[in-house]
Amino acid sequence: MELTSEILSLIRKTSTEIPNDIRDALKNAKEKETNSISKNILSNILENIELAKKESTPICQDTGVPIFYVKSHNSYSQIELRRIINEAINIATTGISLRPNAVDCLNDKPIGNKPIIHFEESAESSQIEIELMLKGGGSENVSGIYQLPNTELNAERNMDGVRICVLDAVFKAQGKGCPPYIIGVAIGGTIEETASLSKKELMRSLNDVNKISELKMFEEQMLDDINLLGIGPMGLGGKTTVLGVKVNSGIRHPASFFVGVSISCWCLRRQSICLN
């Protein structure tokens, strides 16, 4: 029961509080904007963040799909952890921390919420580390997977091709997924691995510096390039279209070259707990 209530607090916190790195990036973006509509949008966003935190109310009515990343020692049963997470999700749904967002595709019936849980084994025996992202649907709809080469975009199998894919995804998204966006990119892998790895990049702090120097450079250039598009906050024009771009590169099959582009709205809700 103790673990259930810890996870329940994690869900509540994730739904009602924006991480500091995102909030700070939004503040910087507000300072940079010169046009009154986009500046005003960003100050309203910041006001909403403060209000939601103060009143412990979900920041956005779309409390998203709960995605858990659990790192635990093999002495903990994954079946039991899954049961506890499901229990906490059900309590949070009844207790209005989460909107019932799961719909059965076959009969279109609402069925509460269904978390996605990724497990990883940890060598550290005494701790369980649980990260949670509540992933909004609007920005999920503008995310996608590209295959290189792409003749339509004139994109080849190299980093420039990757850059073109990311630009294309944001250009097509325009204001539909609530910019300024945070973008997770994964290069390589099989199709499901690419999608999953690009989503995981969204868990990195905006302040986290990529350890691979080529990717660090690439992330910086992507940020500058995308912000030249001028799509701006909520797609109404402005200097800030993205707050951060995070990239992970892996292994590919010789025949394949996938590029995963996971897009998050400005309201990137991610928090973590570490339990002893």
């Binding site: 975009l153 190299n158 294309d168 250009f171 325009q174 690439f218 598009l229 024009g237």
Partner: peptide, 21 residues
């Protein structure tokens, strides 16, 4: 208006090559 302006910039940007690698 935003889409049209961003389209011009997009086409210009995908014509310019990434120099990093």
């Amino acid at each position: 208006s935003v889409q049209q302006a961003s389209k011009k910039r997009f086409l210009k940007l995908i014509g310019a090559k990434f120099q990093g690698i």
